[in-house]
């Protein structure tokens, strides 16, 4: 039986995800504050603020600490000669199999945050779907892109 794919993604991904979590948490804090202000202006019952605060704390814990860690633990990939296997997810864990001969093209992308941490993500497109391996070391991502596109080409010739 096929086990789990062998490789983890870069540990620095964790840092990037945490920073993203902090940004999201900051944005939602802004929304909650706005709601609280509205509550004060219209003299609605003030106790509503308490669940809002609790909600924000729980949310922040999940998006900054719990989710990135679990996601990183689950995220695995493996590039074999004839296929790529990817496992990802949080509550729903998905395992995907993409044969090399089905790969149409490979892209690497790098946003400002990823760039700062020398990371990049690799996007693998088939004729029907797109699969992303996020946050690889950028050297590794580049290498992977070459490997996949070479293997895909070779496999193509076999057909």
């Amino acid at each position: 039986m096929l086990g789990e794919p062998a490789k983890h993604i870069s540990e620095r991904a964790l840092t990037v995800w945490k920073i993203r979590g902090i940004i999201t948490s900051g944005l939602s804090l802004l929304i909650y504050v706005t709601i609280s202000v509205v509550i004060f202006i219209f003299h609605w019952p003030k106790w509503i603020i308490i669940p809002l605060v609790l909600l924000w704390i729980v949310e922040t814990y999940f998006i900054i600490f719990f989710n990135p860690k679990l996601r990183w633990k689950i995220w695995r990939y493996e590039v074999r000669e004839q296929e790529i296997e990817i496992q990802h997810g949080l509550w729903i864990v998905t395992k995907t199999l993409v044969p090399m001969i089905r790969v149409q093209h490979v892209d690497t992308t790098q946003g400002p945050l990823l760039k700062k941490y020398h990371l990049a993500s690799v996007k693998i497109s088939t004729a029907a779907t797109v699969h992303e391996i996020p946050a690889l070391e950028d050297v590794e991502a580049e290498e992977l892109r070459h490997v996949i596109s070479n293997l895909a080409r070779v496999a193509d010739e076999d057909v």
């Binding site: 997810g89 729903i92 864990v93 998905t94 395992k95 995907t96 199999l97 993409v98 089905r102 029907a128």
Partner: peptide, 8 residues
Amino acid sequence: QSLEISKN
């Protein structure tokens, strides 16, 4: 083109 198994 690709195959997936997902489990919640």
